[in-house]
Structures are given as C-alpha cells and as structure tokens.
Amino acid sequence: MPEILVEAHPIDAVFRTDRLPHIFCPGCGIGPTMHAYAQAILESGIPKDQHACVSGIGCTARVPGYMDVDSYHTTHGRSIPFALAIALVKPEMEVTVFSGDGDLFGIGGNHFIHAARRNVDINVICINNFNYGMTGGQAGPTLPLGAKATTAPYGNTEPPFNLPYLAAACGAVFVARWTALHVRQLKDAILRAMQKKGFTFIEVLSPCPVGFGSPNDIGDAIEEVWLYRERCVVNHDAYLPDLEIDLRRKDVPFVMGNFVDIDKAPFDPLAMMKNKGE
C-alpha cells in the first residue's frame, strides 16, 4: 500500500495543534520525548484536565506550550518550586516538570535537590543535550569532559553531573535514563513516574545537532542517534556512580535503565497534623 498524505496525527489530541510545527531543529530529541510524554498522558488514565506541565527556560522549556494541558513556562531554573506549589495546592493533579539540563541542573540545581529531598509528588523529565541550545551551544553542567561548546572551545575541563546518581542520592523514588531513540522504554518510564507518588526523575539523552553534535564532530542528529544506538546498553541494576558519560572512551557504554523504583511517603506539609494522636 502506498502512503496516504494527511494533515493530522492521532497524537494531536494531546497537543495544541494550532502551535505546530514546533520550533525545534530537525532531528532534535525533544520531539520524540514530547511524543512519549503525550502517549503516557493518554495511557495514564488521568484526564488531560488534571495534568499540568511546567518548565523553566531553554529549548526544552518550550514543550509545555505545545501540550494541551495546563501549562506554565516560568523563569530560568525556577520551574520546580512553581510545580511544587501547584502539586501541593492541587494534590489531585499530575504535575510534570519538562525542562533541560542547563535549566534544571545549572541555574536550577538547588531546587532540584531540595524537591527530591522533600519527595514532593512531581515528575521531572530532563532533556539532557549537554549544552545550552537556545543560546547557541554553550557548555552545560552535563557537558562531558573534553567535549566542545562555544564557551568551552578547547574542550570542557569541568567534570559533568551524573544525573541519575544525583537524583537517587537526593531521594527520588523513581530514577531512569533513556535516550530519545528508546521511545517505548521512555514512554513506559514516564507512565511509571505518573503512577508513582513522590519525586520521580527521568533523564533523556537527546541529540542536539546544532549545539552539541556539530562542534563535537558527531554530525547531524541522525549520527548522534546512531551513536546512542551503538553505545547504549540497558542495565536496570547498574551501579549508579558508573553512569558517567564520557565520549572519549569508546569502551565505556552509555548505561540506560530504570535504576530506582522505591516507595516512600510523598511530601505532605500537613503530615504531622494528620499523625496527631496516634
């Protein structure tokens, strides 16, 4: 059967189609991750009206504006406390922070560690493309050692964050890492995060052909995705300190998986009042 040319997609039901196409570059990993999030919303059984999507600033932070849910495009780095407040005022809502590595771990790192420590009931999806894409490819807090960026023209000299290790250490009840190629596993992970009470974290390694691929001689998005295809291994039981990403060492794989899935009481500012008299 030949293809049929159409004008709409079934997943459009979760998007603000009057805003499509989105602003992301050809082959950007944000699109597949958005799709996985949208699919998870559909499969979550939670009505769209009860989902909220919150972001800071950056390429990824534009995602909530495309989602047909309550959406909040806040200031740089401040999405997590914003989302925390919505989740506490409207506990019935499924609140997801969808932002980038620079936003969540550069300027917003303090909010991340404290929200995870509190175990507030929000999901954090982090597109990790190793750089500040919106401003033109500067070094981010996850930029691998030696990798180049416009503000690291001789190669990065700062050790990057190992995000799953960080999230787990701060107390997240669900921690996963996938890539924008592992869309089915990613969708399942987002769905699992939505089902869980407490602070969940999903890192998504994502191609950024302009900001990261090009200066690091990886090439176009498709080549970066092939890199993930070739170097990624799935190991749910991985030892988290070993999850560092080093482009230079070809023998070291990028480890994917659902690393942490534990149960802990979610943050409730009124918990002590409820426990009175017990």
Binding site: E3, I4, L5, V6, E7, A8, H9, L20, P21, C25, P26, G27, P32, D220, A221, I222, V225
Partner: peptide
C-alpha cells in the same frame, strides 16, 4: 500516513 508539511527531513 504522512503529514508532509510537518516534516523537517531528519531521516529518523
């Protein structure tokens, strides 16, 4: 089914 006007040619 293909929506030609949305495509940005990434080849994925």
């Amino acid at each position: 089914y293909i929506i030609p006007e949305r495509c940005k040619g990434c080849r994925f």
